[in-house]
Amino acid sequence: MNRNYLFLTLIMLVLAVGLLFFHAQNKPKQVPPDKLLWDIIQPTRYVSTDNVAKWIIEKDPSIELIDVRGADEYKAFSLPNAINVPLDSLITTSGSEYFGIPGVRVVLFANDDILSDQAWVLLRRLGFKDNYVMKGGLNRWFETIIKPQKPPESDPKTAFELYEFRKGASLYFTGAKVSTSSKVSKAKVVFKRRKKVTVASGGC
């Protein structure tokens, strides 16, 4: 019997055994489609801007704010203590270290819901849990927290309580003084920033 045959047989055997090993690594851990769909339609995956504002004010340590917009937009404006993980760097190893930390709730936000929803689905498919999307994104943030609208007189009491909270939060985030009349100039600065963000969001 030819010794070459034995040699080739062994090579082939080693290669075949190798297949089994790398398969275990290479198989992407993915959530099954039906489960993913179920998770996507759950309204509990959204958090309101009011909740986020509350957590920031209370300095809740279990909250991790992730800004999924590009680095330029992040530099221009972002929420306090937010981490910038652009959507296209989510799947790289450098981006994924912020996710899947036990006991930490990740809140994703962008100018609106689109980018953060995409990021949410990506993260869910990668198997990370406890991710939330800030409903309405930074646009809603400006509408509700920074520049809250006074509810009409006919609204229930809870609407006014919410308005009071938002006014307080607005003062917290804009750094304005309590006096209502003198903070007009501050509010103008904020308004300019909002414009910038909306322009960028139109391009998405």
Binding site: M1, Y5, T9, M12, L13, L15, A16, L19, L20, H23
Partner: peptide, 22 residues
């Protein structure tokens, strides 16, 4: 059956067949 397990099984069958046929 996953492709790599199938390939593994097939290689084993093929290599066995080689030696048996000889």
């Amino acid at each position: 059956i996953s492709a790599s397990w199938f390939a593994f099984a097939f290689v084993i069958i093929a290599l066995t067949a080689f030696w048996i046929t000889m």
